[in-house]
Amino acid sequence: MTDTAEHDELSGRLRRTETLHEHSSIPGRDIVQVRTEIPEGVASGWHTHPGEEVGYIVEGRVRMEVRDRPACELAAGDGFLIPPGTPHNALDLGPGTGVMLSTYLVDPAEALSTVLG
């Protein structure tokens, strides 16, 4: 596993650990899997990814905000999908640190995450 701190603008708020990075059978796409820990009361900040994010809440409760959708509360056992390039934000509701496992189908030439100002 690799800490993605040097590769990801979100690393200042969250602890992200890359568990897998492989070429995809889809031309121009890599599959990247990341375990993210969000401390209680911390938000990821609005950001995007250059491909789909398919996620699963491993521990905790998260308020997920996705542009053009109503915000929703996710708990351990819930899955989610974020379309490519779609701004979104995750806030850990506690108690304790929330843990997510996300799989990205992304263009390897682009940064995994882009923080929005």
Rank of each mutant, 00 (worst) to 15 (best):
M1V: 15
M1W: 14
M1E: 15
T2Q: 15
T2F: 12
D3Q: 08
D3I: 00
A5K: 13
A5E: 13
E6K: 14
H7D: 13
D8I: 00
D8P: 02
E9V: 08
S11W: 11
G12I: 10
R13E: 07
R13D: 06
R13I: 01
R15M: 04
R15S: 09
R15W: 04
R15I: 00
R16A: 14
T17W: 04
T17G: 02
T17F: 05
T17Y: 05
H21G: 11
E22L: 13
S24C: 06
S25M: 08
I26Y: 13
P27R: 14
G28E: 10
D30Q: 07
D30T: 10
D30G: 06
I31G: 08
I31S: 07
I31Y: 05
V32C: 02
Q33A: 13
Q33G: 10
V34T: 07
R35G: 03
R35F: 03
I38L: 09
E40P: 08
G41K: 10
G41C: 03
A43W: 05
A43S: 15
S44H: 06
G45W: 00
G45F: 00
W46V: 00
W46K: 12
H47M: 03
T48N: 09
T48A: 11
T48K: 06
P50A: 05
P50Q: 07
E52N: 12
E53W: 02
V54D: 15
V54W: 10
G55Q: 02
G55N: 05
Y56S: 01
I57S: 01
E59W: 01
G60V: 01
G60R: 02
G60T: 01
V62D: 10
R63F: 02
R63L: 08
M64S: 07
E65K: 12
E65V: 10
V66I: 14
V66M: 09
D68S: 13
D68M: 06
D68C: 05
R69Q: 15
R69D: 14
R69Y: 11
P70N: 12
P70G: 06
A71S: 15
A71E: 13
C72N: 15
C72D: 15
E73Q: 13
E73F: 05
L74T: 02
L74D: 05
L74I: 01
L74H: 04
L74N: 05
L74V: 02
A76Q: 12
A76C: 07
G77W: 07
G77Q: 11
G77V: 08
G77Y: 10
D78P: 00
G79M: 11
F80P: 00
L81I: 10
L81R: 07
L81N: 09
I82N: 07
I82D: 03
P83S: 01
P83Q: 01
P83V: 00
P84R: 09
P84H: 04
P84K: 09
G85R: 03
L93C: 11
L93A: 15
P95I: 07
G96I: 00
G96Q: 02
G96A: 01
G96F: 00
G98S: 15
G98H: 09
V99L: 04
L101K: 07
S102V: 03
S102T: 06
S102M: 07
S102K: 00
T103Q: 07
T103A: 06
T103R: 05
Y104C: 04
Y104F: 14
L105E: 09
V106D: 05
D107Q: 06
D107N: 11
D107C: 05
P108A: 04
A109N: 14
A109Y: 09
E110I: 01
A111W: 04
L112R: 08
L112G: 08
L116Q: 15
L116S: 10
G117P: 11
